[in-house]
Amino acid sequence: MKAFAYAKAPDLAAALAAIEDPGTSVIAGGTEMVNWLKEGIATPERLVDINGLPLDGIDARPEGLRLGALARMSDAAPVVAAEYPVLAESLLCAASPQLRNMASLGGNLLQRTRCPYFRAEVLLPCNKRAPGSGCAARHGETRTQAIFGWSDACVATHPSDFAVALAALDATVIIVGPRGERTVPVTGFYRLPGDDPTVETVLAPDELVTAIDVPAGPHTRASHYLKVRERASYEFAMVAVAAALAHDGGVVTDARLALGGVAARPWRLDRTEAALRGVSLDDTEALRAAVAASFAEARPLAGNAFKVKLAQRATLRALTTAGSRGMVAS
């Protein structure tokens, strides 16, 4: 690990001033940044610690949630469990209890891919690590890679569970920077790799995430996060689904679906959501057809075609589970 200089930011203004210098990185929970420092993925000259800033609130209001960027995963989960089960589940099935005690919500959104080529202890051909070095994964080991939205420059997926649940609930990210405050939907927060996979989000280097807003609605209780993984715990998702539904006597009036583990960003299933309106949750054939509508555009790689099948089945399962919750609740 390269040596760096460290300071605790006394206030937000100081933190923002510090990161105007491109050699300065931010550390919050540290569960990602410390790994990046150890692996040489990040090599900052200076590290500004923002943990002391008053950005750790968890406020449940009638119009929705405001989650401070520095709230810890383990603290947020119990607060949102009753009204937003999909959020709580996405938090509690991630990482381990120790990591959830450390990891901040803002940092969770800013995780980087678990692609084994990217995470290697040495530099491998990876356009994220070394622009122009190529993508060894593209024609290499693709089992865990993307099936949507990839490019020849990068086939990696985003690892966050929480971001997938937020995307399904149409949450927004509050960002501050030298140009003031702005709000970005989670669905628009992440960039697909295109020609430049080094830029993963719309967050500028001189900006900070301060909070996440999650709007309330009739769909948030009838929601579910389904994570498919081979190890029973403490593993990233092979495929994950966030589902939230509103329905009237079992007939879907509103559906929100997002997939994890399939693309460089949480992948909303817009076509499926549209096709589900008016469909009865008892009509498995119609549900299947609605799910399939979003998968025509799937582009599996040589080693991960099974994820197309798996994601559809997981989506159907998550829909059914979310729907049953709604009925129990009402």
Binding site: N35, K38, D49, Q98
Partner: peptide, 27 residues
């Protein structure tokens, strides 16, 4: 593992269990 993947370095900070390998001492 020195990488947040095994839990062998679990300690308590402020009464919470955390991983010492992922924590900067200076903080």
């Amino acid at each position: 593992c020195d990488g947040g993947e095994c839990g062998a370095c679990t300690v308590h900070v402020g009464g919470r269990r955390v991983l010492a390998c992922m924590t900067l001492a200076v903080s």
